[in-house]
Design a protein around this nucleic acid. Structure first.
Length: 566
RNA sequence: GACCCCGUAGUUCAACGGAUAGAACAACCCCGUCCUAAGGGGUGGAUGUGGGUUCAAUUCCUGCCGGGGGCACCA
């Protein structure tokens, strides 16, 4: 909507000036105006200094009547536009009313079919906050692309085979033989993996045993294979629960176990085509030095596969099962960036068709910035964070609503806890490390999901209490607070587009927070129940309905639960 | 050591090359007969460092200093 407003504002200016809607930006202070234009570019074009150019532009703008413009002012080399609040209100609010939850959507990515792959986690390993981040980011990004008109296939590639599995099985049999698994088997296995991993590092004399385990696994030894399948299922069942809690819905799931043999065949192909070669010790490598990507290892000297091996098979399967896909995005931890560069290059050389990209989600570190390491027991498990968030949310909710039923309390607490966690993960750009602080992640104040949910609760409360059938008069919404809120509402579509283009859901998180800040200003300064006239009351109610609509759409995109009261 | 990411307030994060570098948390002060105080208002507080490009640099280039990742049999 903002784009349409901008177009309206500059309509009638000489075409040769080539002023684009996006040249208009929101000035640093709303006192300066609602939109502004820096005249440096135009000045150069017409050979005048910027200050004169600004004056010239204003003259030109004043030649024609534009109901949208209240006034235009020059501030040095800037032209500041003051919009007519009533006209803006009628444009924006009518649009929201019409489009409802489709408001802000566009079709700039129509025709694209995007495969989004996340979180590509491993069975037999722990799920930690780093995975949480990837899942939240992936969800949000997939949703954002859908609002831009793209078709999105949410996929997961589960690494259920390889040395990590062997290590875990070794730990299970050597360190936990005969134990009865606890209820959360997925978590238990992950912890055994971490324990075994540490143990094997500290006791190199046992290294051969875990290597032997891998051999047996590769050879599908009857007993080991059975144990593998069983434990694998424990992990998968655990993941399923976690995905459900977090709203991760994969349309298709791939398993390394199923594609690794195909990958081996692909390696043979590459070898035949002389793209790959035999390296040190008989390993199969591919020389990527001319691309600045060093050497990729496609097969170990003992013949076993690696990630790269299986990924070649995966690419093949994906192309087969999902022929409609036009581009793909992999979300993983940043430490795999180099790996993906190698993989994409190999696939490109091998003639793979669609554009592939990788989003490197930076690490989630410990509060001091220290890296998490299973080895030192310094891992923040997903389950731990979730339980703590639920505990705090329940306590806080009960404190405020001791009269609520247990079910209502729990439901609200869940919405707050998961909202807070998810939001804390997407509010930071993906290239920025997150120093994870549980207190901050489950905080309910400031730039957090509960603040947004709280705004929603206030809106609902008003809508519940005040009823009127009086006609809405947009021209009454003229206070600075109303105008600011309405202009913020107008920006939704632009925010979604930018979030999509920059692959950065934090843009939306920030926008929603600002929207709620503007709503709070409105809330404090523009009473609804005690509005001066019934017409004003009715119009403000409409503004609240619109804000609620936009906020709910935005929260849904970020995966933050919508609540009625809290 | 060639490569990638990051250095902004006490802390955690923002800022298409544009106006006075924004928030949040923490600290201190204030707002309760007023639609949910999980809120609002106020005060103090920051661009690692030396060059360069530009009318304009937190942003682009570059030297240095710090932190992290990663670099053939790990995943």
């Amino acid at each position: 909507m903002l784009l349409e407003i901008k177009k309206q504002v500059i309509k009638g200016l000489p075409v040769e000036w080539d002023i684009k809607p996006d040249d208009l930006v929101v000035p640093p202070d709303s006192k300066m105006g609602d939109l502004s234009l820096a005249c440096f570019g135009l000045a150069k074009k017409i050979g005048k200094n910027p200050i004169e150019t600004a004056k010239l532009l204003i003259e030109e703008l004043n030649k024609k009547k534009n109901s949208l413009l209240e006034k235009v002012e020059a501030a040095g080399p800037y032209v500041n536009f003051f919009l007519n609040p009533g006209v803006v209100a009628s444009l924006v609010l009518a649009e929201i009313k019409k489009k409802k939850n489709k408001y802000g959507q566009s079709n700039i990515k129509k025709g694209e079919n995007i495969l989004i792959e996340y979180p590509s986690n491993n069975t037999h390993k722990e799920v930690h906050v780093g995975h949480l981040r990837i899942m939240c980011l992936g969800n949000a990004l997939a949703n954002i692309y859908e609002t831009l008109g793209a078709k999105v296939v949410r996929a997961n590639y589960i690494n259920d085979f390889g040395a990590h599995v062997a290590k875990c099985l070794w730990g299970l049999m050597e360190l936990h033989r005969g134990e009865i698994p606890p209820a959360d088997k997925q978590k238990w296995l992950g912890q055994i993996y971490a324990e075994a991993s540490t143990y094997l590092k500290d006791h190199p004399d046992h290294a051969e045993e875990s290597k032997a385990m891998l051999k047996l696994l590769e050879a599908k030894d009857k007993y080991i294979w059975k144990t593998f399948l069983q434990t694998r299922q424990w992990s998968l069942d655990g993941f399923k629960k976690i995905f459900a809690e977090l709203g991760v819905k994969h349309k298709i799931v791939f398993y390394e176990k199923d594609v690794k043999d195909l990958g081996q065949k692909e390696v043979d192909e590459l070898l035949k085509k002389k793209i790959a070669e035999v390296g040190e010790g008989g390993a199969i490598i591919i020389d990527l030095k001319k691309y600045g990507l060093d050497i990729g290892l496609l097969r170990k000297s003992d013949g076993a596969g690696l990630y790269l091996t299986s990924d070649l098979g995966l690419a093949k399967v994906k192309a087969q099962k999902l022929p409609q896909v036009t581009s793909s995005i992999n979300l993983t931890g940043a430490e795999q960036k180099f790996y993906f560069q190698q993989l994409f290059k190999i696939l490109e050389i091998g003639g793979f068709k669609y554009k592939m990209s990788h989003i490197a989600c930076e690490l989630v570190t410990l509060p001091g910035g220290e890296k998490m390491a299973s080895r030192s027991g310094n891992v923040i498990l997903y389950e731990m964070v979730r339980d703590e968030a639920l505990r705090i949310a329940e306590a806080e909710t009960q404190k405020r609503h001791p009269e609520w039923s247990k079910i209502k309390l729990q439901k609200t607490a869940e919405a707050l806890a998961f909202g807070a966690l998810k939001f804390s993960m997407v509010k930071v750009g993906s290239s920025q490390k997150i120093a994870f602080d549980i207190k901050e992640a489950v905080s309910f104040e400031g730039f957090t999901a509960p603040y947004l949910q709280y705004s929603l609760a206030r809106m609902n409360s008003i809508l519940e209490k005040v009823k009127t059938k009086l006609k809405v008069d947009y021209s009454l919404l003229v206070s600075v607070f109303e105008k600011k809120l309405i202009l913020k509402l107008a920006a939704m579509a632009g925010v979604l587009q930018e979030a999509g283009e920059r692959q950065d859901p934090s843009q939306l998180a920030k926008y929603l927070f600002e929207l709620c800040q503007d709503f709070s200003d409105f809330y404090e300064n523009c009473p609804v129940m005690r509005a001066n006239t019934p017409q004003l009351m009715s119009s403000r109610l409409e503004l609240i309905r619109s804000t609620k609509q936009v906020l709910e759409s935005g929260l849904t995109i970020l995966g933050v639960p919508i609540i009625k009261e809290m």
